[in-house]
């Protein structure tokens, strides 16, 4: 199939592993799904200390279950990416360990305390879910199938995050103040979750043309702000002055992009953000430390799938 045919046919769940697809499509889809999978892993890595630090058994259970789900999502997504035949899961995880694999901006920032947990568990997960819901209609069928299960599970994450926020904002004055401070620190990063506005992006959006992406960054950011700004306010959070956000005549939220630090955003995107390197390297060390187990189970140098070439013939 040539790329023009791909663009003509591009529609929800249109392409599956049996199709003969051009490398351009397979590479673009791999890049997108790998990014998504890496983000699940790095999000889980960021949140894992809060399993221990949770202030009740109930929260501890929920945090453990949530981190477990994210690893499960990583498992589904790496598999969906593998079906494109460009990279194996092991290669993608190695790239992530070695600082080549890219992932969401928000998961580069270190987290220090419990009051920060709803910034990820409610706002970032809420944002992610807005995007993920649209990806159930992506053109790569295995990716859409992964999204079915992810979206099924993810509602628990967002509601759990909202419940943490609700408790904090109904807690002591100090809890409320510290939650507001955390919100101010995280808010610009959360807005940047969706990337720069479409008219500023220089490259032609190939992923949209071939049906991998179903909504633009602008549309998703709008949808996020429409839903989550009122929610933040409902719990008594004040929206910071900068970046300026305002409602236009249609009642929709608009962000002054120049108020955001795009140098930092692109530094983060390239894995060069100094404070975030601890997370990339920490996870890499953990992966390397259990390398011996994979060798024991699979045998040294065994090809993926665990079959010798002779047996496969």
């Amino acid at each position: 199939m040539d790329i023009e045919t791909v663009k003509e046919r591009a529609g929800p769940r249109e392409f599956s592993p049996g199709d003969d697809l051009p490398e351009e499509y397979r590479k673009a889809a791999t890049r997108m799904i790998e990014f998504h999978a890496n983000s699940e892993i790095m999000g889980a890595y960021l949140e894992r200390p809060f399993i221990r630090q949770a202030p009740s058994i109930d929260r501890k259970l929920a945090f453990s279950a949530k981190v477990q789900d994210e690893i499960g999502h990583g498992q589904l997504l790496y598999r969906a990416a593998e079906t494109l035949g460009i990279k194996t899961r092991e290669e993608m995880l190695d790239d992530l360990a070695e600082g080549r694999g890219k992932f969401l901006n928000c998961f580069h920032y270190p987290m220090d305390g419990w009051v920060e947990t709803p910034m990820i568990a409610f706002f970032v997960d809420g944002a992610a879910m807005r995007r993920q819901a649209t990806l159930r209609r992506t053109s790569w069928e295995p990716y859409a199938h992964a999204m079915d299960k992810v979206c099924f599970e993810e509602g628990f994450h967002v509601k759990h995050g909202e419940d943490i926020l609700r408790t904090l904002m109904n807690g002591s004055r100090a809890e409320q103040r510290r939650t507001q401070e955390a919100f101010e620190e995280w808010w610009p990063r959360i807005i940047q979750f969706f990337g720069p506005t479409d008219d500023k992006s220089t490259h032609h959006d190939f992923a949209a043309d071939v049906g991998l992406k179903q909504m633009t960054n602008d549309e998703l950011r709008q949808a996020f702000l429409d839903m989550y700004v009122p929610k933040a306010r409902k719990y008594g959070l004040e929206i910071p002055e900068y970046p300026r956000v305002s409602q236009n005549d249609e009642g929709r939220w608009v962000v002054e992009e120049d108020d955001l630090d795009w140098d930092e955003f692109f530094t983060v995107a390239k894995n060069n953000y100094e404070p975030g390197l601890g997370q990339i390297n920490g996870r890499a060390r953990a992966q390397e430390a259990v390398e011996w187990v994979r060798d024991v189970i699979e045998g040294d140098g065994a090809p993926a799938g665990g079959r010798s070439p002779q047996a496969a013939d």
Partner: peptide, 25 residues
């Protein structure tokens, strides 16, 4: 129960996709 949406009784309006997840669960 902690791993199900139904454990979190928030009584607030939810995003459409969160509601879908809720009803699927």
């Amino acid at each position: 129960a902690y791993r199900w949406t139904t454990a979190y009784n928030l009584q607030t309006e939810q995003a459409r996709e969160v509601e879908e997840s809720d009803s699927e669960q």
